[in-house]
Design a protein around this nucleic acid. Sequence first.
DNA 1: ACCCTGTCTTGATAACTGTCGAATCAGAGT
DNA 2: ACTCTGATTCGACAGTTATCAAGACAGGGT
Lengths: 122, 122
Amino acid sequence: MSKQLVVLDTSDRACCVPITEASLDPGQAVDLARMFKALGDPIRLRLLSRITSAPDGEICVCDITGDAFDVSGPTISHHLRVLREAGLIEGERRGTWVYYKPVAANLRQLAALLDAPALASA
Amino acid sequence: MSKQLVVLDTSDRACCVPITEASLDPGQAVDLARMFKALGDPIRLRLLSRITSAPDGEICVCDITGDAFDVSGPTISHHLRVLREAGLIEGERRGTWVYYKPVAANLRQLAALLDAPALASA
DNA sequence: ACCCTGTCTTGATAACTGTCGAATCAGAGT
DNA sequence: ACTCTGATTCGACAGTTATCAAGACAGGGT
């Protein structure tokens, strides 16, 4: 269960090249789009923000459920699953609680793709 | 017609702060999510790549329709509209043809949000 | 063995999205 | 005016997604 995208980076340099540099390979675009799509929801964006900004580098689900998020527990769980299957976070159960932490490599890959020095003048 | 997100940046510093730094404001999350969602489709990602990597900084729709994209004209048009309404590109008609170019400020804002130095160790 | 709390899965439903064909609009050139 | 080409909008349909309530699973404590 729990298929999970790890780092893509198949052809050593294909990853981490800004979109300004060349037309995106169709196959790569699918994987990248899955990650961006996972970010394309306000609740997931806030969840990821909470996770990445956690002091210990990880956060307990118990600290987000029923909090400022006005959605039910299952819905939170669903969004965490989407983020996890997109490869943006990863979770681990420790006793009663489940902890999530970001997958930095993939987050940085997205940032690099959008970081467009050639666009500085627009 | 054609509502279009320009730069968000309402509270001078709210923009461009990495998600690692603080929990995202719910209102901001909505606007940011709309941009990420626009990137969350392989065809749109490839379209944006073509637009941002165009030599002249802009590209004619006539150069993408019926090209390597195996979707119909109306579908291309639909995706361009989504990108435009998200504030990632902007279009202009010149005579018979329509040209699109990226909105660099908003693209850079997304990159900055994901650029997470604090995550370097993961 | 039993419950209790935390988290996830299932099943259902309403809303949204991607896609196409057909129709429409915008300009340019006879 | 008419037509031709490029681009968009409209209407419809299949597939996907967000959400919740109800139920299931995992571990810890009594």
